[in-house]
Design a protein around this nucleic acid. Structure first.
Length: 522
DNA sequence: GTCGCCCTTC
């Protein structure tokens, strides 16, 4: 971690920003009143649907076509018979095979008009949708596609998308290519291409997917297949998935894609923007994150508090106080509210290693006054700040306050900070009593906790206690890491307790494997 | 409709 050297005047500058009228006012803003839902419209559309469905309840070969015709085609030419009506009726039929019979009836009975083909296409879409939800649907959908071609009924956008998705979930990527190329250009809308895109990405055809996007970008400004927000979401949600870390495209390549979208007037969602900036900052590419951030603002992007928090953390880690200040000013300017996390970052990074703990407390007080409720991590940041400044007594006071008054109970991390700091300040007895406190309060120690206490006990040469905690570690199936092993191996072998060490290792293997079995069972 | 929920403490 870097040491931040900041002048006091810059501190007060920041504090002023943080607690500026705008900031505080934003913090206490109430959410807007919910709007009443728009009044529902009723029409005789619905009664036609209900009546038609009643007539269609009898077996297919017994349908009263005269009555149906009167209901569905009351006038000729059928000016009002929108394809939507036929879609809605078909969609409510019990199965795709029933729906196919209805289609057959429509083909034979609908008076010919310019609307006929559209009517049949919409009916066919409903058939696809029904089939999509039925068992064995994938084979069925392929058959239906063939039927539609034989009957010369063009697919609607939605019908094509159901078919594409069916191919996608059956991993029939080659078939999806054939279908896509076979479709009429008018059907290949942005929406359909987005569906196609997600299928390509999921099946690992990243290059093909990027080609589709390029085509979309190269299409005319007024075409129906320009990339939209969803295009960006489909692509970037794929590239920035939690478990992915640059193995598909490098971060720089992803940034370039984001900028390309931006140049074409598509701003990716603030959520994915945030994810990308977070990732850049975590991978020590804070400059790149900063450039992207400022570029997106220039393009008019709306960014979230969480994104700014990531960037603040990255800048703080580098000790770039000027840019932190600049970012805070931008937040005020752009109405991005600082939240409890923002305050946590400031407490943690702004008062470390300079020792300006008054600043930390000031931030905390202002924050509470502004109605922002501190979380366990906020207290963690404050306690950590005190500990890092060698003021463990004051840190313990905050900890006691936390237990006594606050509704925020201390967690493992809080105990870890204190136990580590107490041990480093030769207050191992107090650290041990915190271990007991954890036990009483039901806070589970983890490997970090044991490592901290082991180091303290080693300095005190307290073999009796270390054996006790080693047993407890095994008992609670807490796995040692390389730090644990390093401390114990060095110390115990030096004092001739190899057997005790071996017993510990064997115990860990047993408890480790039983823990694995337990988690496998759940 | 298609995508899916980033940020602070050991």
């Amino acid at each position: 971690m870097s040491i931040i050297t900041v002048s006091a005047s810059k501190h007060s500058n920041l504090l002023r920003l943080l607690t500026s009228h705008t900031f505080l006012r934003r913090l206490s803003t109430e959410p807007p009143e919910p709007q009443p839902p728009p009044q529902q419209k009723t029409s005789n559309h619905n009664s036609i649907i209900t009546e038609a469905l009643q007539l269609l309840q009898t077996p297919g070969n017994e349908w009263n076509t005269t009555q149906l015709n009167q209901l569905l085609f009351p006038d000729s030419p059928p000016s009002s018979s929108s394809p939507r009506l036929f879609y809605q009726i078909t969609r409510r039929l019990p199965s795709s095979s029933q729906a196919l019979k209805f289609l057959n009836y429509l083909q034979n009975n609908s008076p010919s008009s310019p609307d006929t083909q559209s009517l049949l296409s919409y009916t066919f879409q409903a058939i696809f949708e029904l089939a999509f939800c039925e068992p064995e649907s994938n084979a069925n959908l392929s058959r239906l596609y063939k039927t539609s071609k034989e009957l010369n009924i063009p697919l609607t956008v939605n019908a094509a998308s159901f078919l594409l998705r069916a191919y996608g979930r059956s991993e029939l990527v080659e078939e999806s290519f054939i279908l896509f190329n076979d479709l009429d250009p008018s059907v290949k809308t942005t929406y359909l291409r987005n569906v196609w895109l997600s299928i390509l990405l999921r099946s690992g055809r990243v290059k093909d997917a990027l080609k589709v996007i390029d085509e979309m970008f190269e299409s005319n400004e007024d075409s129906n297949c320009r990339p939209n927000d969803a295009t960006g979401d489909v692509l970037f949600s794929f590239l920035l998935k939690r478990e992915r870390n640059g193995e598909i495209l490098s971060e720089d390549e992803i940034v370039n894609l984001v900028l390309k979208f931006g140049d074409h007037g598509v701003l990716i969602s603030s959520f994915w923007m945030g994810r990308l900036i977070t990732r850049l900052c975590r991978n020590r590419k804070t400059n790149r994150a900063w450039d992207l951030f400022t570029e997106m603002i220039k393009l008019g992007a709306v960014l979230e508090s969480a994104t700014c928090n990531s960037l603040l953390t990255g800048l703080a880690r580098e000790g770039n106080f000027n840019r932190m200040n600049e970012l805070m000013a931008k937040m005020v300017e752009m109405d991005i509210q600082p939240n409890v996390v923002t305050f946590g970052i400031l407490i943690n990074h702004m008062c470390n290693k300079t020792g300006d703990l008054k600043f930390a407390q000031k931030v905390m007080r202002k924050m509470i006054k502004a109605g922002v409720v501190p979380t366990v991590a906020t207290y963690g940041a404050l306690i950590n700040a005190y500990c890092l400044n060698g003021n463990v007594n004051e840190a313990m006071e905050i900890f006691k306050d936390m237990k006594a008054a606050s509704k925020v109970p201390p967690n493992t991390v809080i105990y870890n900070i204190l136990i580590d700091s107490l041990c480093k300040n030769n207050k191992v007895k107090s650290a041990v009593s915190l271990m007991e406190d954890m036990k009483i309060r039901g806070v589970t120690p983890n490997t970090t906790t044991y490592n901290a206490i082991f180091k303290g006990l080693r300095d005190e040469k307290d073999l009796e206690k270390v054996f006790e905690f080693m047993d407890r570690m095994i008992e609670h199936a807490c796995n040692p890491d390389y730090i644990t092993m390093e401390i114990l191996t060095e110390w115990l072998s030096a004092v001739g307790e190899i057997e005790r060490l071996k017993k510990f290792v064997a115990g860990c293997e047993v408890s480790g494997s039983s823990a694995q079995k337990a988690s496998a069972r759940t």
